[in-house]
């Protein structure tokens, strides 16, 4: 029983980070209909910037702020400079451009900071909480991670549903022509969409950094599992991203604990296919009908 509880807790914690990466992917998908393969590279880069702040004696929170701010800027700049020219092109071109960006960011980080992974501090202790004399695989820092991701999801939902800006963002993404006629500056909204997504991604990077270390290739799995989570949840749904992330995190933890740690990636494939066979557009698909 303790084992099951611990595997579940470990799954929820890693799932929360998958959810954050998935949220970033969902935001960009909603804004520009692009699957952003550069996300893994972007969050790696911003986390390195945060690490540099800490390395130079800055506090955890200053580093976090640096990561978030640089995420905002990086997202906006990349959208303007590199992604904008392919937004009107076939979607696969955008896929390749984001792939190229990912490779480029990884190389740049390797050039600047080297390949040796670095330690990244957690905001709170990682010593597990004790319940009835049993240490759990759940620490105050894990609670912080889960709380931060939940807060981001709530904030995003409020932004999209309750604010004028959110309405304009949604309009620009779903009906750009009509939005333009209504006076929405569509281009600016798309840039903002990317910036927001990169912000969420950079948060995910800082949250996961203590448990995977900071290095050019350390976040590769984050992108794969984040994307898997987003697909499971349905790419149009922020709530789906979070649910998808948690489900995937738990599924992988159970596979690792009960079957074999060699089969974790295969477990991700199995989980994804199972969901997609039942719901081809993810768990939280807006309409089950086939769009033609």
């Amino acid at each position: 029983m303790v084992r099951f509880v611990n595997l579940t807790l470990a799954g929820i914690t890693s799932g929360a980070v998958f959810a954050a990466v998935a949220l970033a992917l969902v935001l960009i998908w909603r804004a520009t209909r692009i699957v952003n393969f550069a996300q893994g590279g972007m969050l790696m880069f911003t986390t390195f910037l945060a690490w540099s702040v800490i390395d130079h004696g800055g506090s955890y929170w200053l580093a976090l702020g640096t990561a978030l701010a640089s995420g905002l800027v990086l997202g906006a700049v990349l959208e303007r400079v590199v992604v904008r020219p392919v937004e009107s092109k076939p979607p696969l071109n955008a896929v390749i451009v984001t792939l190229g960006l990912y490779v480029l960011l990884q190389a740049a980080a390797g050039m600047i900071w080297g390949d040796t992974p670095h330690s990244y501090p957690p905001a709170f202790t990682i010593r597990g909480l004790s319940v009835a004399g049993e240490r759990l695989l759940l620490s105050p820092f894990d609670l912080f991670v889960i709380g931060a991701v939940a807060a981001v999801m709530v904030a995003l939902t409020l932004l999209f549903v309750r604010t004028d800006l959110g309405l304009r963002l949604r309009a620009a993404a779903f009906a750009p022509e009509i939005a333009r006629l209504q006076g929405v500056r569509v281009g600016r909204m798309l840039t903002l969409g990317w910036a927001l997504a990169a912000l969420v991604g950079s948060l995910a990077g800082v949250l996961v950094a203590p448990s995977v270390f900071v290095g050019p290739a350390q976040f590769d799995a984050m992108l794969v599992f984040g994307f898997t989570a987003a697909v499971i949840g349905g790419l149009d749904s922020p709530a789906g991203a979070v649910v998808g992330g948690l489900l995937l995190g738990c599924a992988l933890s159970y596979v690792s604990g009960y079957v074999s740690s060699d089969l974790v990636t295969f477990g991700a494939l199995a989980a994804l296919i199972t969901v997609l066979m039942v719901r081809p557009n993810g768990l939280f698909a807006a309409s089950a009908g086939r769009r033609v």
Binding site: V231, L235, P280
Partner: peptide, 14 residues
């Protein structure tokens, strides 16, 4: 993207 995700998981998992 759902197809992309499924095939990506295939590439990683197999």
């Amino acid at each position: 993207p759902y197809l992309a995700g499924a095939t990506l998981a295939f590439a990683v998992g197999l």
